[in-house]
Amino acid sequence: MKKISKISLSLLLAAVLVIIAACGNKNTTNNANSGAAESAAPSQDAASAAPSGDSDLASLKGKKVALVMQFNTGTFSAQYVEGVKEQVEKFGGKVQVFASDNDLVKMASNLDAAINQGYDGILLDHGQASALEAGAKKAVAKGIKVISFDSDLNVDGVTMLQQDDQKMADLTLEQLAKDTGGKGNIVKVWVAGFAPMERRQISYKAFQAKYPDIKEVAAFGNANNPQVDTQAQMKAILTKYPKPGQITAVWAAWDEFAKGAARAIQEAGRTDIKVYGIDMSDEDLQMIQDPNSPWIASAATDPKDIGRVQVRTLYKMLKGEQVDKTITLESVYVSRDQLPTDKKINTTELAQYVDGWGSSTQNYEDWMKELEAQN
């Protein structure tokens, strides 16, 4: 009995030691694994504090942008397209231009093509709601971001970009009134059916009421081949009113109209008529600088800036940021007496002489600088 008890005690002791050793090893292993896990993964607080900006910006790279234009006539449109392409490429995207040759049916078809081809964003240039509303709604329903410029499109989910058309008209018309002493005969070159033109017409009607001694002796305008058509029609009006003083000035609601009118007046040798326009391009600026040209002033927004702001607004939407339903672009007044007489300049250099030109930072966010740097 005694011998058996000693053996039993020895076995019991051995078993206890084995259990203690096993528990010690288990705790050591668990502690080691726990430490490794804590080292490999950040805490929940650290993870939530980690910046997500890089991943947000990465998602914006390689975006496909469609620019659907009602017309792409003249140097203003060319510089606007240049601004769009420049900003999209800086953001690492690609842009495709769909020109519609001033055909609204074709523009609607181009919009449908852009939707069906799976573009990430669509920029609309001019156009009318009657032609674009259905397509715009379809694009929004598919999650495509849409921004229109100078159109009357009012669709939920579509942001509208526009120039301050009434201000631009006011600037030129008030200067015309000042230069003529509030009296005289004028010609208006304008065309209906375009949202910016309709807004400019509001200011023109107010101008007529304010200055009853300034008489409109002729009014015309054609958006198809506008420069050549205006030149021909202005030539006919000058034949009808051949004497100095019969026409005091021309107010042109578009730079393409101003170019045509100015060329007709200059060819006729009429130095008694001044031209006031709206919009500005390199070609326009050269004409305004020419001391022999009747075109002496224009109110405008830098066309490249228009394109840049439209693209920036699109990328804000692509990033999920809120933007205003309507965005109004800033404009300036440019007259010959502001410009150098010893050299010709282009619109890139215009900022040296006209405050506010070509320096718009509208909708230019800090993260966009980073996105540009990455590309």
Results as ranks from 00 to 15, higher is better:
residue 373 A to Q: 09
residue 157 G to L: 06
residue 117 Q to N: 04
residue 213 D to E: 03
residue 253 A to P: 14
residue 238 L to Q: 07
residue 4 I to P: 08
residue 84 V to D: 02
residue 161 L to T: 06
residue 104 L to I: 11
residue 73 T to Q: 14
residue 210 K to Q: 05
residue 128 Q to N: 13
residue 105 V to Q: 15
residue 48 S to G: 12
residue 38 E to K: 12
residue 147 I to R: 13
residue 53 G to D: 15
residue 313 T to H: 01
residue 61 K to Y: 00
residue 260 G to L: 04
residue 81 V to A: 11
residue 46 A to S: 12
residue 130 S to V: 12
residue 201 Q to H: 00
residue 319 K to S: 02
residue 119 Y to F: 08
residue 255 D to T: 06
residue 211 Y to N: 06
residue 74 G to E: 07
residue 300 A to Y: 01
residue 346 N to Q: 06
residue 277 G to Y: 13
residue 33 N to I: 13
residue 113 A to R: 15
residue 212 P to N: 06
residue 346 N to M: 04
residue 299 A to F: 04
residue 173 L to E: 03
residue 97 V to I: 13
residue 63 K to E: 07
residue 248 T to M: 05
residue 7 I to M: 01
residue 344 K to T: 15
residue 194 F to A: 15
residue 281 S to V: 00
residue 195 A to S: 13
residue 239 T to I: 09
residue 265 I to M: 11
residue 11 L to G: 03
residue 12 L to C: 04
residue 371 L to M: 11
residue 310 Q to F: 15
residue 86 E to K: 15
residue 290 D to Y: 07
residue 291 P to I: 01
residue 292 N to I: 04
residue 267 E to Q: 10
residue 348 T to M: 04
residue 343 K to P: 04
residue 93 G to L: 01
residue 315 Y to I: 08
residue 16 V to Q: 06
residue 83 G to T: 02
residue 273 I to S: 06
residue 262 A to C: 08
residue 168 M to S: 09
residue 206 A to C: 04
residue 34 S to E: 13
residue 94 K to V: 13
residue 357 W to T: 05
residue 135 G to N: 14
residue 186 I to Y: 02
residue 108 A to H: 00
residue 283 E to H: 02
residue 349 E to Q: 00
residue 42 P to N: 03
residue 365 E to W: 02
residue 233 Q to D: 05
residue 65 V to D: 10
residue 203 S to L: 03
residue 142 K to L: 15
residue 308 R to F: 11
residue 51 P to V: 02
residue 94 K to A: 14
residue 38 E to F: 09
residue 248 T to R: 02
residue 364 Y to D: 05
residue 185 N to W: 12
residue 5 S to I: 14
residue 77 S to C: 10
residue 273 I to A: 09
residue 234 M to W: 12
residue 310 Q to M: 09
residue 313 T to Q: 07
residue 46 A to P: 09
residue 13 L to V: 11
residue 299 A to S: 03
residue 364 Y to G: 02
residue 286 Q to G: 08
residue 226 P to L: 08
residue 54 D to W: 10
residue 80 Y to P: 09
residue 146 V to T: 05
residue 90 K to Q: 15
residue 74 G to R: 03
residue 206 A to M: 10
residue 49 A to D: 08
residue 251 W to D: 00
residue 262 A to Y: 04
residue 302 D to E: 10
residue 93 G to Q: 04
residue 328 T to K: 14
residue 74 G to C: 05
residue 199 R to T: 08
residue 143 G to T: 11
residue 167 K to H: 07
residue 91 F to H: 02
residue 291 P to M: 05
residue 261 A to P: 03
residue 243 K to P: 05
residue 279 D to A: 02
residue 46 A to D: 09
residue 233 Q to C: 11
residue 214 I to E: 04
residue 46 A to N: 05
residue 102 N to M: 09
residue 113 A to K: 10
residue 62 G to T: 01
residue 344 K to P: 00
residue 75 T to E: 15
residue 280 M to I: 01
residue 26 K to F: 15
residue 96 Q to K: 14
residue 367 W to S: 01
residue 239 T to S: 14
residue 37 A to Y: 00
